[in-house]
Design a binder for these strands. Structure first.
Length: 661
RNA sequence: GCCCACGUAGCUCAGUGGUAGAGCACUCCCUUGGUAAGGGAGAGGUCGAGUGUUCAAUCCACUCCGUGGGCACCA
């Protein structure tokens, strides 16, 4: 007798061992039809798995997250089968399920063409129609290696060779096609359904290492139903309309050009956002006992050698000779004999120089030193991405010099400040990663372990969940990374905190401790927005350009209906501006429909319309972005309420309180 | 940097081996219109750059530059 515990806690008994399908049938025929796998004691297994002992069992269907992941994994296999049928000689490598879909990496001399995707999709549908039974076999490792080598699948053989020789490997067969795979899989290709689409073609390095050859990756998406597939594709299409590069152009915020790729030309409207954001963070930092500094843009390469950046990051630094070029027509412009200098890629070594002026006491600590530092990094061409990844960036950077005892409280202080800021900006969905010691690192393992623990403890103390990013720390310190997502779901690091023992030691940042001894300060590198450029990019995408009032480049447009109201509208604009608002006047010879449309497209949050009537009554007709309603309100009242509405989030509560008194 | 795709007017995009077109935007004229595009006229392009093939290249080939999607990188 076998006791089977169902998800609802009830227990079923079976006379004899049975497989997953039989188990599903024992519950309901309809369930057996939909079953694609089973979960035994929390582990997803093939439907053909035989249950022969007392376990907790659950039937998996495509409507569950586990089922969907299975579907995605199988889609990768079916795609691989289709590709090998259509393009003989193509080698398969790996093909996992990912968020929303799957990919498979292929090795083939000829590149796939975008039009090949349709052919592959068509063949995939045929394979689904063939409803090939998927079976699992266990082979010895050596047999598997020999087999895959014999059919010219050298990548597969290499993967299997990495498995200990004593272990058997599982191989899945579907029709005539087979692949090494841990599984589990669907019972047959027919269960995949046809709610899939191949979405893009890309290159990807074998084993994720740029020293290896490049494979061809095909991405696809698959869903349980056509309706879900369609919804997903529509969602992506809609999200692409929120792309900050598109909105940036439409709203006339900034541009790039090839003479300075990766560096932003901020237009007046975009720079308003930049300045407002900077001013906001500055107030936040001032209120949190930071001091602000400004340090040199150019420093001698020797300086960067000392900090350790020259050795590791030189290739990404903009290096300039400290030499005045020859202006004569003949002869070399530069002799090459000048000392090298570099544009700063980061601010920290410069902040240490300020810290090191004079002698610091433990009584002085912590020192929280902030700079809106303009840094340059020569990022790889392929890495550049609108405002998200630039070569000239402005960080809301700060370094906290503190004692070892202050690490935890300073980290908590920072995390709380960061969350207060993100909340003001309307970001709730923050992913935190704790990036740990990389292969190449500075300092001692003991220090690293202590630092990683301190960061984790601080996060737990502030009540935030986080995930571990193994080996992704900076060379000198473990990091906390705070990630936000862009419109189409790509994750970008914004905030960060790095706990550094190495740099203070290298650059001699010491203080006099209570007992009179000299100790190295601990340095926390931290940023909340990260770079203003990227953060603005994320902000634009998250609100589709409809920025909150306090950040909107133009907060109000006063538009006239007829020229009778021109003088009154101009007066209204003057009053609104005097009250500190960013206002534009529109007295063009255009119909009000036209003006409303244009300013709506331009994402102006408030349009105040003035016609003859309003001019006579000293009112305006107010229309808000995204609404078709209008309300006629007195000019003085509207100015007062808009002023309140346009206050930055850190100033609004105090102002409201004062107004209430 | 690597793989694939793309590059035509300010923007979005057609198009052709015989030196270019639309819509919107822009300028001017008419229109003074009550909440998401009123009408007319005009101006605007070395078809990303270079080399080659050809009688002839925006179109074909190659190289380079840039952009997009990924990969790698991200102090």
């Amino acid at each position: 007798m076998i006791k089977l515990t169902l998800p609802d806690g009830s227990i079923r008994e079976a006379e004899a061992p049975l497989d997953g399908l039989a188990f599903a049938e024992s519950i309901a025929k309809s369930l057996a039809k939909k079953a694609i796998a089973i979960k035994i004691n929390g582990e997803v297994k093939d439907l053909a798995t035989v249950i022969d002992r007392d376990v907790a069992v659950e039937v998996i269907t495509v409507t569950t997250p586990d089922g969907l992941e299975l579907l995605r994994h199988d889609a990768a296999h079916v795609m691989a089968e289709a590709v090998q049928e259509l393009f003989p000689g193509t080698q398969v490598t790996i093909g996992p399920a990912i968020e929303n879909g799957f990919f498979y990496d292929f090795a083939r001399k000829e590149p796939f063409r975008p039009e090949d995707l349709e052919k592959i999709e068509e063949r995939m549908r045929q394979i689904v129609d063939r409803n090939e039974v998927i079976t699992r076999e266990l082979w010895t490792r050596d047999d598997a290696v020999a087999y895959f080598k014999s059919i010219g699948e050298f990548y597969k053989a290499e993967i299997i060779e990495g498995i200990p020789s004593a272990e058997d490997v599982s191989v899945y067969k579907q029709g005539n096609w087979l692949d090494l795979c841990r599984g589990p899989h669907l019972p047959s290709t027919g269960k995949l359904g046809k709610s899939f689409k191949l979405t893009k073609l890309a290159g990807a390095y074998w084993r994720g290492d740029s020293r290896n050859e490049m494979l061809q990756r095909i991405y696809g998406t698959v869903w349980a139903t056509d309706a879900e597939l369609k919804a997903y594709l529509t969602m992506i299409e809609e999200a692409e309309k929120r792309d900050h590069r598109k909105i940036g152009r439409e709203m006339d915020l900034y541009h790039f050009q090839e003479e300075s790729q990766g560096s932003v030309f901020w237009h007046p409207k975009g720079y308003v956002i930049f300045n407002q954001l900077e001013a906001y963070i500055r107030r936040r930092l001032n209120a949190s006992d930071y001091v602000e500094v400004k340090t040199p843009q150019l420093m001698a390469s020797k300086f960067w050698e000392q900090s350790g950046h020259w050795g590791k990051y030189r290739e990404n630094m903009f290096v300039v000779p400290d030499e005045i070029p020859n202006t004569e027509d003949e002869g070399p412009v530069l002799t090459g004999k000048g000392d090298l200098m570099a544009l700063k890629p980061m601010n920290c070594p410069a902040h240490v120089q300020i810290f090191n002026q004079g002698i610091k006491s433990y009584r002085d600590l912590p020192i929280r030193m902030a700079e809106f530092g303009c840094c340059h990094r020569n990022e790889a061409h392929g890495a550049l991405h609108g405002l998200m990844r630039v070569r000239q960036m402005t960080q809301d950077d700060a370094h906290i010099f503190c004692t070892e005892e202050q690490i935890q409280s300073e980290t908590e202080h920072f995390v709380n400040l960061l969350y207060a800021v993100y909340q003001d900006m309307g970001f709730a969905d923050v992913v935190i990663k704790l990036a740990t010691r990389p292969e190449k690192f500075g300092g001692t393992i003991e220090r690293w372990d202590a630092a990683e623990k301190a960061l984790g403890d601080a996060l737990r103390a502030t009540g935030h969940d986080f995930i571990i990013a193994e080996g992704e720390g900076a060379f000198y310190a473990p990091k906390l990374e705070f990630h936000l997502k862009d419109a189409i779901g790509r994750s970008w690091q914004v905030g960060t905190l790095q706990l550094d023992y190495v740099l203070p030691e290298r650059l001699g940042a010491t203080y006099v401790a209570e007992d009179g001894s000299r100790k190295n300060a601990v340095m926390l590198h931290r940023a909340i927005l990260g770079t203003l450029e990227r953060f603005i990019g994320i902000m634009i995408e998250s609100c589709a350009g409809k920025l909150p009032m306090w950040l909107a480049p133009v907060q109000v447009v006063v538009a006239t209906i007829t020229s009778d109201a021109d003088d009154y509208a101009a007066e209204a604009v003057a009053l609104l501006r005097a009250a500190g608002l960013r206002v534009e006047l529109d007295v063009r010879n255009e119909k009000i429909n036209y003006k409303v449309r244009e300013h709506s497209v331009g994402k102006v949050p408030v349009i105040l319309v003035a016609g003859k009537r309003e001019a006579e009554e000293r009112t305006v007709s107010m229309r808000r972005l995204g609404s078709q309603d209008q309300s006629v309100v007195g000019l003085d009242a509207v100015i007062k309420s808009l002023v309140a509405e346009c206050l930055p989030p850190d100033l609004a509560p105090a102002a409201m309180k004062a107004a209430a008194e």
